[in-house]
Lab assay of single mutants.
Amino acid sequence: DESNKPILLPNESQSFERSVQLLDQIPSYDTHKIAVLYVGEGQSNSELAILSNEHGSYRYTEFLTGLGRLIELKDCQPDKVYLGGLDVCGEDGQFTYCWHDDIMQAVFHIATLMPTKDVDKHRCDKKRHLGNDFVSIVYNDSGEDFKLGTIKGQFNFVHVIVTPLDYECNLVSLQCRKDMEGLVDTSVAKIVSDRNLPFVARQMALHANMASQVHHSRSNPTDIYPSKWIARLRHIKRLRQRICEEAAYSNPSLPLVHPPSHSKAPAQTPAEPTPGYEVGQRKRLISSVEDFTE
């Protein structure tokens, strides 16, 4: 099969070098950035008060330690540790928490760990991170309901609301924008112990962030949302095809390698009803078989 044979790379090609550099910018793992907010007593309706908090309760602090690993920003190499735009020179604080497994990295933009500057009256330095995160974990210690939209931002799609209760338990629920209701189930609340709260809140936030990324990708319907490693695979396959075309153009005697095509017509299947918005969006999480067989 010609399409699977190794090909020689061009010795000097600026377009090839640019493509390789672009490939280096696509990590081999999925990345997520999640905002974390603490809401104190009497702050449920005040964005400024929430963003001005420099610490929270003892249970909130224990919750943070379970979310991930504490890292010092100045020691991080952005090409190895995903920071979601946090500055490593102290502009966004000294520490944050991050978490990773074999296929993804997540960083938490924690408002109480970011510096509260006197010259920044409206807390814009914090909002440029927190307001651009799709998902926020809100530790609501106010005793009042927290409403979506209290923290203004164009991309605040989903809130994971943590409400501490007695007996070391917590109520965990989801809020989302109306255009996200087909992807996020907000109907079920959970009672979770303090011990298990970081794991549950983190998983709910990661799932909500993946759904938000799919939702946000609708602005470019021709580019369905893939995982990062599938995006790398697609980029490599496009690069291979372009090299083959350039080689055939410079030397017409060489065969032009095309991806294999299936001449056999697909079997006719009964027509199915058109899937609704929710089903269609969830299918976009699934990769096409052509990603692996071309």
Rank of each mutant, 00 (worst) to 15 (best):
K33G: 05
H216K: 04
M114Y: 04
R240P: 14
A271S: 11
V184E: 03
G149N: 11
S136I: 05
S193V: 01
K178T: 13
F134I: 01
V289M: 09
Y29I: 15
P78N: 12
A267P: 08
M204Y: 03
I286Q: 14
V257M: 12
V81N: 14
F95D: 04
H159E: 15
R234H: 06
P259A: 11
P27I: 04
Y97N: 03
A49Y: 02
L64K: 01
A267M: 09
D145A: 06
A189Q: 11
V279W: 11
H122V: 10
S227N: 12
V135L: 00
L197A: 13
K121I: 09
G280R: 08
G68H: 04
H215A: 11
E17L: 11
L70F: 05
I137G: 00
V200K: 00
N140S: 00
Y249A: 13
L285D: 15
V192C: 05
P6G: 10
N170T: 03
S142V: 01
S3E: 14
Y225G: 13
T31W: 03
H129M: 12
F155V: 06
H215R: 11
Q77H: 14
M114E: 04
I7M: 08
T274P: 12
Q43T: 02
L233G: 12
P10W: 11
Y58V: 06
T163Y: 03
I230V: 14
V138I: 07
S261N: 12
D92S: 08
P266K: 08
S261E: 14
V39E: 00
A106S: 04
H258N: 12
V81L: 08
L130F: 06
C89W: 06
E168L: 02
K237R: 09
I191T: 05
V158Y: 03
T112M: 01
Q43C: 02
E246N: 09
W229V: 05
Q268C: 13
V172Y: 00
I161N: 04
S136W: 14
Q175T: 09
V81Y: 15
E62V: 05
G149S: 12
T96C: 11
T163P: 00
V20A: 07
T274W: 09
I137Y: 00
H100K: 15
I161A: 02
M114Q: 05
E62N: 12
D194Q: 01
V257A: 13
K126Y: 05
A247D: 12
Q94F: 13
Y139S: 00
H258E: 15
Q105F: 09
D118A: 15
M204V: 04
R195A: 11
A106Q: 04
G153A: 10
T31H: 08
L48R: 08
L9M: 15
L64H: 01
L233Q: 13
G68V: 04
R195W: 04
S253V: 11
G131S: 15
P226Q: 07
A231G: 14
H32S: 05
K121N: 14
M104S: 13
K33V: 07
P6Y: 05
E12Q: 09
S250G: 10
L183V: 10
Q268N: 11
K190C: 15
C89G: 14
I103S: 06
D120N: 14
E2K: 08
D185N: 06
Q203I: 08
Q21P: 06
M210K: 01
E294P: 14
M180A: 04
G66I: 01
G153M: 10
P273F: 10
L130I: 15
S142P: 00
F199A: 02
L233M: 11
C124E: 15
I103M: 15
I191H: 03
P252V: 10
N4V: 14
V172L: 06
T163W: 02
L113I: 03
D185P: 07
T269V: 12
Y29M: 08
